[in-house]
């Protein structure tokens, strides 16, 4: 069975809550301490190289303090996370209040778009380039 609208919104709300909890837990640490104190990335833990998303928590924290250069340095993917963490609660609330499913439809549109070769190939290339930069920076 495909994901239903209500299940989708429940999972997404739970994911947002975990994200806020994670930021609260991590936010009290210095950026340099985060990579060593809470090493949740299995690739970083076992292979000792960062994954493409390593540093995105530090990037979100930098953006929360208005440090855009820091946000780019730690991981540009942090911008996406930051935007999602701000927008999703409002979007979910809007859909639930007005009994709409604009976010659910957007999710399916996003999936369909990303399945197209001309979108998927540049996206994969960007992720790989970001990964190489992450490894080079050793975040």
């Amino acid at each position: 069975m495909s994901l239903s609208r209500n299940h989708f919104y429940t999972y997404l709300s739970a994911a947002c809550l975990v994200g806020y909890g994670w930021l609260l837990l991590i936010g009290r640490l210095k950026p340099e301490e985060i990579g060593t104190s809470y090493d949740v990335c299995l690739i970083h833990h076992f292979a000792h190289i960062p994954c493409p998303a390593c540093g995105s928590t530090r990037s979100v924290l930098a953006l929360m303090h208005g440090d855009i250069a820091g946000g780019i340095y730690w991981n540009p993917l942090g911008f996406i996370m930051f935007a999602l963490l701000i927008a999703l609660p409002f979007w979910i609330g809007y859909d639930l209040a007005l009994k709409k499913e604009t976010l659910f439809k957007f999710y399916h549109l996003f999936e369909d778009t990303l399945r197209r070769k001309w979108v998927a190939i540049p996206a994969i290339a960007l992720i790989l380039a970001n990964w190489v930069w992450n490894i080079w920076k050793n975040v």
Binding site: V40, A53, S56, Y107, I127
Partner: peptide, 18 residues
Amino acid sequence: VGLGVAKLLTCGGLGIWV
């Protein structure tokens, strides 16, 4: 694809999803 992007952006759901 959507869940894949979410898993990728969150370091595998902070390792738990993995």
